[in-house]
Amino acid sequence: MLKLSKVSKVYEGKVAYRALNDINLEIEKGEFVAIMGPSGSGKTTLLNIISTNDQPTTGEVEIDGKNPHKLTKNALAKFRRNELGFIFQDFNLMHTLTVEENIVLPLTLDGARVKVMKEKASKLAVSLGIESIMNKRTYEISGGQAQRVAIARAMIHEPKLLLADEPTGNLDSKASKDVMSMLVSINEKEKTSLLMVTHDPQAASYSDRVVFIRDGKLHSEIHRGENRQAFFQKIIDMLSLMGGDGNDFSSVRV
């Protein structure tokens, strides 16, 4: 489904900075992978490269056998809105639109039928618990609600690969549990591949596999196995092994 081979990213500047170094990573269809690592380790950079928002300096990205970085601009735009779904760290909602309009935006651009759009949007709204705010404007809703709207928008066109940058960063533990179960159910039902960057070990424990990055390099990875509680414990252990106290992570974001 997704294959990174020897991906490196160098930020040019006064001092060139190597943010990613020879990353090899493969994600199966329908797999749910979490990426963790200390602040500044290159997680957002990695996600940006996969989501085609940024170019790798060297190395190859393959999604479904195609290299999206080699597409023309127009084909890339179509590719993004048909194959990929994004949940941005800062939501990226449009403040001139209502919640519902924000959610259907990717479909309208593709010229879908109104009835279809309405149905899909309301189905998602029910499952995300945002039906009551569908006609509100984005400045009238809370951060957690905005997060869920962003998730709904990322999923409305049933993408093959869903990319999420800290989807639970703004939520309390109850809300983040809801969002995570939501993601898991999409992952299971629609067979959507999921790649999620997170600082939250709780959220990470919903995934099938956690990949740890440090200083732009793959550090290690652990698989979930049968027991979620044990998995959670292993994540905590790995985090403290990598860089001191696990709690350090939860407070830092891009």
Partner: peptide, 11 residues
């Protein structure tokens, strides 16, 4: 923002 979701040049 919209370009990140996917907006062609023509659009």
């Amino acid at each position: 923002s919209i370009a990140k979701i996917g907006l062609t040049q023509a659009e």
